[in-house]
Write a protein that binds this DNA or RNA. Structure first.
Lengths: 206, 206, 206, 206
DNA sequence: GATGAATGAGAATTCATTCAT
DNA sequence: TATGAATGAATTCTCATTCAT
């Protein structure tokens, strides 16, 4: 699908128009970093983008539409993860590969925390567009991870489902605003990553 | 903490009052099954409960308050999970105990899906009351699970963190409105449970 | 159909509510006497009724809804016309009956000019609800008039259609804000009535 | 008055400019065939004409201006009606002439239904420009018709007013989107024409 | 204990209109 | 000649909230 080329008034967008559209998206994301999801409003976004309310409606139908555009854009940028999963994983390099996998995963979440949270929030509530987006961006990932598990630990009966579980664990933890379990700190987040890496490694080679 | 005994006007609640208060809570939960979280409003709840708008304010200050009451009520009912975790887990009965644990966990989510989703949603966004509620109801659980892991598989460096990861995986998957990964069915949900059980079991005994 | 008994919030309306609802209707009609139909807005109506905008929406969904209610109310009040048409018309009293018919018709238009104009405006543009209302309130009238014509002047091939035409003529002229044909005056309106009466009489007895 | 030769920017219009201006007018008329008069907006028209919003303002000041131009254009095309009214009407050819008159009248309305409806709508609400346009295009017509009536049926006291009434009847019926009186069909419209013709004929010769 | 009634406040939405290109 | 782009201003519409009954 080509990037949108017309605004909601049917006008072809030039550089300026595309810039403005982008500004709206950025403003929405910026606001979500601090204020609550359900309080996000057209007015707030327009104001954060230093645009008039009316201008918002030149580019987007409503708040959900901006967010969808944001999430869609983020979805395009998961290439690095695939790189790790396309490399060969062996008993010997597994520990290292797993570490790399977890690291990159965390970096992506760090970068796209807001977008991914929105995606999951809506998907979990049954919003189909977001659900599909999640399914599409996740499927291949999960298959590759599942295959790794199956290959390295052929005894497992449900490698594919374990892949899903691992993914859910990583996503769930990454989503948390503050880990908080015990008054969490960055240190804790680092330890959690280590724990997850150990978990995956254990599942692969034991 | 005892169940609320007075409404917001300071009146002692009789049976009728308690019933009405309950109806408001049930209406909120009912609405969350179908419509989106951010659309939930006082008017909608009152209307679903077949009460006048004004009546809502006799019992609750605002929507968040109702939801908090719901989540709190759900939190009281996790006793069964503790029962499993308080039993002895040995290499011999581990498979069975794990299965039981996963089953009960799923049942609880089935029963309190809406409440738990709300709790996590708010907690993930940094809402302190819900975050604390989650921490409180989760802490002991996670410790017990972590201890089991540490005891049965002493080689692991991060048993506590693995417990957190497992819990996140189970919670994440249970939260999803429809699993959907590959056009999911109930069957898939069952398989996922099996996968998780296998995963835990593997971590414990291998 | 019973008069509305609940407002749009589902509340049973008491005297006060019914009064307020009426005030909204009256305000709308009042405004239509002076300002243009297409400029009639919710804000204007609410303000004319000395109510807040929000109150408007307690009783009506939008402007069309108020107008429909007005038109419907006016439709109930055409009894007098039927009285004339139910009397016996003979060659001897025809001139007098026709005169009475035209007079009452004009009085009704004088009283309900706004409502009837709105009705016709919307009906002419294909708005079904208003079209149906017009058909219902007109049908019996036209039949009775047609029968009179057919009975008194049996030679006519299309008495029913002529009744329709007469009705259209009267309605069309009554609707005009100012007769204006030749820079019209009240005098002219009176003469027009006389002309129409003569026309009907001629058709009946010649 | 000569056809407009300059646009609102003062530029002389070439073929292309005249075409665009026409497209705006056609778009407005097209929209009025289906959507409601009061919803007609600059944006809608521009969009229907596949022109940018800004282009509209090159040719017209506002929506009323376009409509006025349309109505004015239609008014130029009533020549045929005059032809019939300028012919000699005698007791012998009256039936035939009346039939021709009604037919041509209907054809014109068929062709210019939208324009004439707009004209009457505005005129009925007291819009002076449209009122004058109506008076101008109608006066001669009505005089001629009145004279015919007076000459052929000298007994009538109000021939001029009867002419006005006849004209109102024809206009009123022609304006209706759907006759609808009894779930109307084209057949019914035809019968109505026959009725009107009979009515006029009766008035002339009886 | 419950609710008709009303509304302030603010958010969503639309539109006509301008201007630089 | 045409149009992207932007917006002020008005309007629609919704909601939480209060209060008298």
């Amino acid at each position: 699908m080509p990037p949108e080329t017309r605004n909601l008034l049917g006008q072809k967008m030039g550089r300026k128009g595309r810039d403005t559209r982008k500004r709206v998206m950025d403003a929405a994301l910026e606001l979500l970093k601090t204020s609550s999801y359900k309080d996000l409003s057209v007015s707030e976004i327009a104001s954060e983008a230093e645009l008039s309310n009316a201008t918002f409606y030149v580019y987007f139908k409503d708040v959900e539409e901006v967010l969808y555009a944001c999430v869609e854009a983020a979805a395009l940028d998961l290439g690095e993860l695939h790189a790790v999963l396309d490399a060969e994983w062996t008993r010997d390099n597994a520990r290292e590969q797993v570490k790399k996998f977890v690291e990159i995963y965390n970096e992506l979440w760090e970068k796209y925390r807001v977008e991914l949270r929105v995606r999951n929030l809506e998907a979990d509530q049954g919003n189909l567009r977001f659900l599909n987006l999640r399914i599409e961006t996740t499927r291949t990932l999960l298959q590759k991870l599942g295959n790794k598990i199956a290959k390295l630990n052929p005894e497992l009966e449900y490698p594919q489902q374990i892949a899903v579980a691992i993914h859910a664990a990583m996503g769930g933890l990454a989503a948390q605003h503050d880990i908080g379990i015990t008054g969490a700190t960055r240190q804790t987040r680092k330890k959690l990553s280590a724990g997850i890496a150990e978990m995956i490694y254990t599942l692969l080679v034991k």
